[in-house]
Simulated assay, not measured.
Amino acid sequence: MSTPVIICDDSSFARKQVMRALPSGWDVELTLCENGQEAVAAIEAGKGDILLLDLTMPVMDGFEVLEYIRKKDLPTLPIVISGDIQPESHKRVMSLGAVAFIKKPVDGNELTRVLEQFGVLGILTETDLPADDRQITFNEWVQEITNVAMGRAADLLVRVINEKVELSIPHVSLMEQGELEMTLNATADGDSFSCITQGFIGGGISGENLLLFHDTDIRHVAKLLNFDLNSLEAATEIELYMDIANVLVGAFLKGFAEQLDVNFSQGHPRITIHNEDSAVLLANHQGQERILTIEVNYVIGDNQVSCNQLVLITPESIPALKIRSGEEII
């Protein structure tokens, strides 16, 4: 008899990865869901004896799904598969009833071990798993590797500051120069912002990372980094922003590069501690067409420090990215 299994992830690329990681010969009746609301409806319809669940999703995220399952006492075995690998996230999902936590990108051997641990595999046969014929778009693939990279960045930062980092769903798009200027102006909206910019290159891929802190009280940054507030001065303010940016940017680019199997060389960072026209910040991208833009948001330490990360990748890099995807993407 087939085992009803739900794979719940807003990324079609991630759903395909999980499908490929399922044990060969496992007789399953598979249901694919794009958000938590769809997943709980499928569980209530009897389609999810086992739930393979992402955390960062629209409509209803993974934490909310676990809370709902516990509240309604739904009959399912929840296994979380997520790029948010922060210790606090791991602890929270286990307290909400998840039976295991597997980091992205999912490893088939680890998933098999977890399923064997709970005795749900039964007798493996030569049964072929159902196919997901939906083609992956380039933007969907970039979004998923971004999701994993930002989870690794947050995990490293939280180990430095011992505060949870709230993650958003990354947004990926190909933007004309005018669209990018509007996006940056909207991102930098507020009385003031501090921006750290840093270029990177490797494996035929090049771009620039912009990290913007909004209306941030430098004392909050100092507190997060356990710095003596009585020693604050202008030079120290720059150092503090650079310290927290180095962790986020360095870890993000490392996680991004590892999934592409490349090594990025990073340029010298530049910092601006005041409002600056977007045309100045985008000077390196003037005249370029269709810049690949990745938008990521972080909220650090009890809503006291928020920042936006814009990763701008040159049009010339896109062919190299597509080759390294290893996927048939459109």
Rank of each mutant, 00 (worst) to 15 (best):
2 S>W: 10
3 T>H: 11
7 I>S: 02
8 C>V: 05
9 D>V: 03
10 D>Y: 03
12 S>F: 06
13 F>K: 00
19 M>Y: 01
21 A>I: 00
21 A>N: 09
25 G>L: 07
31 T>K: 05
32 L>N: 04
36 G>R: 01
41 A>C: 07
41 A>W: 08
43 I>N: 00
43 I>P: 04
45 A>Q: 14
47 K>R: 15
47 K>M: 10
53 L>D: 03
54 D>L: 04
55 L>T: 03
56 T>W: 00
58 P>I: 11
58 P>T: 06
60 M>L: 15
64 E>M: 12
64 E>G: 00
66 L>D: 00
67 E>H: 13
67 E>P: 04
70 R>H: 11
79 I>A: 03
87 P>W: 09
87 P>V: 07
87 P>H: 10
89 S>L: 09
91 K>V: 08
94 M>A: 05
97 G>D: 02
99 V>T: 02
100 A>I: 05
101 F>P: 02
104 K>D: 02
108 G>W: 01
109 N>A: 03
111 L>Y: 05
112 T>Q: 13
118 F>H: 14
123 I>L: 09
126 E>Y: 13
129 L>I: 08
130 P>N: 09
133 D>N: 12
135 Q>C: 12
140 E>I: 01
144 E>H: 09
146 T>A: 10
154 A>G: 06
155 D>Y: 13
159 R>A: 15
160 V>W: 10
160 V>F: 12
171 H>D: 02
176 E>K: 13
182 M>R: 14
184 L>W: 03
190 G>D: 02
196 I>D: 00
196 I>C: 09
196 I>W: 10
200 F>Q: 02
204 G>C: 05
206 S>E: 12
218 I>H: 10
219 R>K: 15
220 H>D: 15
223 K>W: 12
223 K>R: 12
228 D>V: 03
229 L>R: 08
229 L>I: 06
233 E>I: 02
236 T>D: 07
236 T>H: 12
241 Y>C: 07
243 D>L: 14
245 A>E: 08
247 V>E: 05
248 L>Q: 00
258 E>N: 12
258 E>Y: 02
258 E>I: 08
260 L>E: 01
263 N>S: 11
265 S>G: 10
267 G>C: 05
269 P>W: 07
271 I>V: 15
275 N>M: 11
276 E>W: 11
279 A>Y: 13
286 Q>W: 14
294 I>M: 07
296 V>P: 00
300 I>G: 02
303 N>C: 10
309 Q>N: 14
309 Q>R: 09
312 L>G: 00
321 L>Y: 09
322 K>S: 06
323 I>T: 13
324 R>N: 06
